[in-house]
Design a binder for these strands. Structure first.
Length: 998
RNA sequence: GCCCUGGUGGUGGAACUGGUAGACACGCAGGACUUAAAAUCCUGUCGCCCGCAACGGCGGUGCGGGUUCGAUUCCCGCCUGGGGCACCA
């Protein structure tokens, strides 16, 4: 038979289905191994070639571990709640559940083609009520829990209530915003008051949070949906607004999330990102008293990591949202301050951040007293200070903090006037303050009273001590991690299992009433008065009378715990049985993209720790080992577009555009004589697109008001960077460009006709740019086509062969022929050209064994260190050598099939059956090898003189270094390199190389 | 601005702990087979120089230094591509 991958794949699939080889069952006799991929969001575009990269990697691991005797759990599911389905529903009115179902079917079909060894009996979908029942159940547990700081774990809220009843807040760690009370006070509070207090402790709670509110869309927007203060879609104004939002108290776990990183085998870069995100900083709080003419007293509390620079403080900056702003602003500044606050609060955080160079601020008219020097310091507001971090106030030390430095320089004049001296003061020696702030934590204190002469570290300790003695602050640890907002004004998500009683107290739905099903609505939009879509549900009341919470959970809710559900996916009495959890435990190997570094990967660690605290699972970290696979990028084909023609239509007085180029002068049409009026009506030109040509580009960049942007041409209309213009213009996407000009070196195209200008080319050339593969960039490559042409085995091997799995790389099919040829070559070890079976039962020669053993060893080592690309090379070398040796021996080929089967499961399964096995190759055992056969007894040493390799000499490996040294020194061939001198030293590294120093 | 990554032939990449730089492929060139094409097989392929040839010389892993008998690998300082971000006091 000839190599026919279609028939092969079909047969292999039959075997797998019949023998149910991928089904995972509890088996205490075998060690377990849990391999998991981050499950996909089933988008409408289907799988592209970038998706499978990680899935192939995890599949190789799963199949390899099975061969090594592990009981492997390798499930797959869908993160099926999410925004795109909802957007689509809003546009078309179709229920998101329907589109989601459709998309899942597409995904499933594509994944099956690739031969993944998933146990599909365990599939989960986060949008399935049977699944989200338990997401809601865990939410309820979060609501009924608080974080006991002393015990350093979450506990049932009842333990807190009984503490309140006995001791009030005595002995508890309170946040700044919480007022202490006694046991008696607690007992006298109304139920409503008690419930409000408890919300300050619950791990799921409702509180005011700053959000980007878009009144026109009636919804809250994410940072990246806001551009320049308006919504990205529609361009409606967006304002910062305090809104009641459900949140999760992840900050309670900040320290444990940080410490837990030490015990997990994740890449350093991911751990580093999480550390930065959690952002533990040690410092202290300091209070500054506000001076005011009237008798009001206000204190501004700041948090600083650099109390050693306290004598360098020259002003205080408050966040625009800071609650004291209104109270301390003096009459003279009231208008200016309120204008500034309006301006600043309406910029999104993303805008504030993107725009670091733009310095803005406003003086409040108020002053504070420096607690040590007694000097008056002005109080400013500035949007470089964020309300949500620390206390929302900074003691500005321009000499030793870069942002304060920039601010002080910008407002130098006013600050100098207010202070009576220049705002930049040196208090740590070591830098040059005329150029930049000296922010290093290194140096000696100067101009600092009692800190003078102390090095930074000691000064920090001393300053905190003094601050505590004066009772104006205390040493404090701060985290930048913020609580996670958990409510969304959306439809397509898990309903939050909360209702409000007659008094408006939030209560959890009884567990027996779970799941709270997502109700039907007439439209998926917010209501006219800005309520979330769930408000549209008619007669949707708990127990027929109570109002439900109307927001839904965010897209990432289900992913916080889904890995546990895979262990026991059909359980109706618990999220998973104790037996299943005790056996499968946490994930041994987790694969996914590094874009989840600080979102999903942090939240799912948080939920795991919480479930551990409740005693529901016996481990604290969800995934022992993590691999971030890189993304396969698409290659976009870009033309540049300028809107200049629009200016021309409005302003005919501009001079003709002409670009000097190496092809002569290049004229851009703006007059009737350039454009043949018979064909071209100037006012109909809608776009000018041009080839990436430095001269043209530069020209447009220099033209005022012109904006040069990139336009992606769908890859199917481009070959070797040349656009097939007529096909492009005839397509639906290109039809918009009918009245566009396409500039080339030699002239321009208009309505598919070329008008020559110069001697250059008439080809429209694109620039190839690798970027994210996405439907909207017209650069998507669907795996189906590639699989259709080369088969799934070749596809799998090629994706692995492309390079290290964790690296990002552009997709390019150029090399796929290599692995395809390899598969055919391997096939030829089994069948000759005429399709005759070649395999014999002869015993292999030592040489043939050696070739095989080398491959067995190399491939196993490579899988263990996740170097899949190099094991593909090892297979190629092995097959090349066996071909050379003309080896068709069953013993060798059988082992070869086993080690190759994780990579190319179809063809190996097929040939395995042909070898006479009735049980699937998946059930085979990874072959052993005889290490003694691989031991060489001699080695050809490269001999270097002064580090430069000159000759190669063969020595037995059992010679001592001294023996080799003697041989080398007396060697004739080397004499000419000594240049008359005698060798000083000979370095012999056994089995590696020899170096002679002359 | 900050954080994380990467930079090796025409291309993807290899070199795992400081020890022969360029494995394995793609592409290209030449050849064999064929009426021809496809497929397959063989040879060559980092650059420059000398030469009949060499198992000859020189240079070479983004750039400049350093450590070392020896550096793609370690250290310092730059340049540059990609990705991310919540200006984190």
């Amino acid at each position: 038979m000839e190599f026919n991958f279609r028939a092969i794949e079909e047969r292999a699939r039959e075997i797998w289905a019949k023998q149910r080889v991928f089904q995972a069952k509890l088996d205490h006799a075998r060690p377990k191994y849990y391999v998991l991929d981050m499950f996909p969001y089933p988008s409408g575009a289907g799988l592209h070639v970038g998706h499978p990269l990680g899935y192939i990697g995890s599949d190789i691991i799963a199949r390899y571990k099975r061969l090594k005797g592990f009981n492997v759990l390798h499930p797959m599911g869908y993160d099926s709640f999410g925004l795109p389905a909802e957007q689509y529903a809003i546009q078309t009115g179709q229920h998101p559940a329907i589109t989601t179902e459709k998309n899942i079917n597409t995904f499933r079909g594509q994944m099956d083609k690739l031969g993944f060894s998933f146990d599909w009996d365990r599939e989960v979908r986060t949008s399935d009520p049977k699944f989200y029942k338990w997401t809601q159940w865990i939410f309820i547990r979060l609501f009924h829990s608080w974080y006991n700081v002393k015990a350093d774990r979450a506990e049932a809220i009842e333990t807190l209530i009984s503490h309140f009843e006995k001791n009030g807040t005595e002995g508890l760690t309170l946040e700044d915003t919480q007022q202490p009370f006694s046991a008696d006070q607690w007992k006298n509070y109304t139920e409503k008051e008690q419930s409000t207090i408890l919300l300050h402790f619950r791990l799921a709670y409702i509180a005011d949070s700053w959000v980007n509110w878009c009144p026109a869309l009636g919804t809250v927007l994410a940072n990246d949906e806001v551009k320049d203060g308006v919504s990205e879609r529609g361009g409606y104004p967006v304002e910062r607004k305090l809104m009641k939002q459900w949140s999760l108290r992840i900050t309670a776990y900040a320290d444990r999330l940080l410490k837990g990183l030490e015990e997990i085998d994740w890449s350093e870069s991911i751990k580093e990102s999480q550390r930065n995100w959690i952002g533990k900083s040690e410092g202290c709080s300091v209070q500054f008293k506000v001076v005011k003419e009237d008798n009001t007293t206000h204190t501004i509390e700041v948090f600083t990591t650099r109390p050693d620079t306290i004598f360098g403080v020259s002003f205080i900056t408050l966040a625009p949202e800071h609650e004291l702003v209104a109270q301390i602003t003096t009459a003279d500044y009231r208008n200016a301050v309120s204008d500034y606050v309006t301006y600043a609060t309406n910029r999104s955080e993303r805008d504030r951040m993107a725009d670091v160079k733009k310095i803005t601020g406003q003086f409040t008219g108020a002053y504070v007293i420096h607690p040590f020097s007694g000097k008056k310091l002005p109080v400013w507001i500035g949007d470089y200070v964020l309300a949500g971090y620390g206390t929302g106030a900074v003691m500005a030390v321009p000499g030793h903090d870069a942002r304060d430095y920039a601010f002080a320089q910008f407002f130098e004049k006013e600050l100098t006037e207010q202070l009576g001296h220049h705002p930049i003061v040196e208090v740590i020696s070591g830098g040059d303050l005329s150029k930049e702030a000296y922010a290093a934590k290194d140096g000696i204190c100067v101009n600092s009273d009692f800190l003078n002469g102390l090095p930074v570290k000691e000064a920090i300790r001393r300053a905190i001590k003094e601050i505590e003695t004066k009772e104006i602050g205390a040493g404090k640890i701060n985290f930048r991690l913020r609580d996670a907002i958990f409510g969304r004004q959306r439809y397509w998500g898990e309903p939050i299992p909360i209702y409000y009683d007659e008094e408006g107290i939030p209560r959890t739905v009884d567990e027996k009433d779970l799941p709270v099903l997502l109700p039907e609505v007439d439209k998926y939009l917010p209501t006219e008065d800005g309520e979330p879509p769930l408000a549209r549900a008619s007669n949707w009341k708990y127990k027929g009378k109570y109002e439900y919470e109307l927001t839904t959970m965010p897209g990432w809710a289900g992913s916080c715990w889904y890995y546990l559900r895979f262990e026991d996916p059909k359980n109706e009495h618990a999220f998973a049985s104790k037996e299943a959890i005790d056996y499968w435990q946490q994930i041994d190997f987790y694969l996914g993209g590094d874009e989840h570094a600080t979102g999903h990967l942090l939240y799912f660690r948080f939920w795991t720790k919480f479930l551990f605290d409740l005693g529901l699972i016996p481990f604290e970290e969800p995934a022992k080992k993590l691999l971030n696979q890189g993304k396969i990028q698409g290659v976009s084909q870009k033309l540049f577009v300028t809107g200049i023609s629009f200016d021309y239509r409005r302003d005919q007085k501009k001079p003709p555009l002409s670009i000097p180029s190496k092809f002569g002068k290049f004229e851009i049409p703006n007059s009737e004589d350039f454009l043949d009026p018979k064909y071209v009506n100037l006012t109909r030109i809608n776009k000018i697109l041009y080839t990436p040509n430095e001269e043209i580009e530069q020209y447009f960049d220099n033209v005022e008001e012109s904006n040069s942007i990139e336009q992606n041409v769908p890859i199917e209309f481009v070959q070797d960077n040349v656009v097939n213009l007529s096909a492009y213009l005839a397509s639906p996407i290109g039809s918009d460009l009918e009245y566009s000009l396409f500039l080339t070196d030699g002239g321009y195209w208009f309505r598919n006709k070329f008008y020559r200008q110069n001697n250059g080319s008439d080809q429209v050339i694109t620039k190839s740019v690798p970027e994210k593969m996405s439907k909207s960039k017209y650069n998507v490559i669907n795996p189906d086509e590639v699989i259709g042409e080369y088969g799934a085995d070749a596809f799998r091997m090629y994706e692995m062969f492309l390079g290290p799995i964790e690296q990002h790389k552009p997709w390019d099919t150029k090399g796929i022929d290599g692995v395809y040829r390899f598969l055919k070559k391997m096939w030829k070890l089994f069948y000759d050209e005429e399709g005759q079976w070649l395999v014999t039962n002869e015993a292999p020669s030592p040489e043939e064994r050696k070739v095989l053993y080398r491959a067995i060893k190399k491939v196993a080592e490579d899988v263990e260190r996740l170097s899949f690309n190099t094991s593909v090379s090892a297979f190629m070398i092995c097959v090349n050598e066996l071909t050379q040796l003309n080896c068709h021996k069953k013993e060798v080929l059988e082992s070869l099939l086993i080690i190759l089967s994780p990579y190319a499961p179809f063809v190996t399964e097929y040939l395995w059956e042909q070898l006479g096995h009735s049980s699937s190759i998946v059930k085979a055992v990874y072959p052993e090898y005889d290490a003694s056969l691989l031991v060489e007894n001699a080695f050809e040493y490269p001999v270097a003189i002064n580090g430069k390799t000159r000759v190669k000499l063969n020595f037995a490996l059992d010679l001592t270094n001294e023996q080799i040294e003697r041989e080398v020194i007396s060697n004739e061939a080397l004499q000419k390199y000594y240049d008359g001198k005698t060798p000083k030293k000979v370095i012999v590294v056994k089995g590696r190389m020899i170096n002679i120093v002359v």
